[in-house]
């Protein structure tokens, strides 16, 4: 089955390069140069695309309205493509429900990896809702509330476990500080980023071989955290 991708990008060259590259990867790509065009395309299409790549800083806005509209219509994965300076709009879109982001300039390999993870999470190609996670020595079973490292049971405090579980549910994707604080501690703790720093340090100390050089619990500076993509089964 060919998956359709909607690419919303105002730069013509980048649009055609990315479009061609994705076609080579087997996707069917529709392109829009503006939010208005993307909206029109969505309204006229019979079905939603399998994935949306949304560039920030389009001539007619930051895409928040398009995001809201897409979220009303269905669980379409949305990957935000952002410029590196100014994480503000990126974080806003992630908090509003975008699945992941990619900062310009990026390589095709990075884009394809993000798309793969996003498609898996939204259930288009594989069973949704990760309840088991395995990467290198780490194995997490959310159903059984078990965390193992190299076959050894790891004892986590309840908060550490909730934090890890939240990341596992979106493994491979970035989870913003705000989302983590709201889901693990509660909405009133948004802004207490220092809690996150402390608990991430504790989690890394228990799960990483070298906490100063983490390979599992990755930091996205200024945005949030990402649990590395699980090993393919």
């Amino acid at each position: 089955m060919t998956l359709s991708v909607l690419l919303v990008e105002d730069d013509r060259d980048l649009r055609s390069t990315l479009g061609a590259a994705l076609e080579v990867e087997g996707y069917h790509v529709a392109c829009s140069a503006s939010l208005a065009d993307a909206r029109a395309r969505l309204n006229h299409a019979d079905a939603l695309p399998a994935l949306v790549l949304l560039d920030l800083g389009l001539p007619d806005g930051d895409g928040e309205s398009l995001l809201a509209e897409l979220r009303r219509r269905g669980p379409v994965p949305i990957i935000v493509i952002s410029a590196r300076d100014g994480e503000g709009p990126t974080i806003r879109l992630l908090d509003a429900g975008a699945d992941d982001y990619l900062a310009k300039p990026f390589t095709l390999g990075e884009l394809l990896a993000r798309m793969r993870v996003a498609l898996r999470h939204r259930g288009t190609v594989a069973p949704p809702a990760t309840t088991r996670y395995r990467h290198a020595a780490l194995a997490v079973d959310l159903a059984g509330r078990r965390v193992q490292r190299a076959g050894q049971e790891v004892r986590l405090t309840p908060t550490e476990y909730r934090l890890l579980a939240r990341l596992v549910r979106q493994a491979g994707q970035v989870v913003t500080h705000r989302q983590l604080l709201a889901d693990v501690w509660g909405p009133e703790f948004i802004g207490h980023t220092h809690y996150l720093r402390l608990y991430m340090a504790q989690l890394r100390a228990k799960l990483e071989a070298d906490p100063a050089d983490p390979r599992l619990l990755l930091t996205e500076p200024g945005v949030g955290y990402r649990l590395v993509e699980p090993d393919p089964d």
């Binding site: 500080h177 980023t193 220092h194 720093r197 991430m200 340090a201 890394r204 906490p211 100063a212 050089d213 983490p214 990755l218 930091t219 996205e220 500076p221 200024g222």
Partner: peptide, 11 residues
């Protein structure tokens, strides 16, 4: 924001 040097070095 409150940041950890460990994380900065790690990233």
């Amino acid at each position: 924001d409150w940041e950890s040097l460990e994380e900065i070095v790690g990233s």
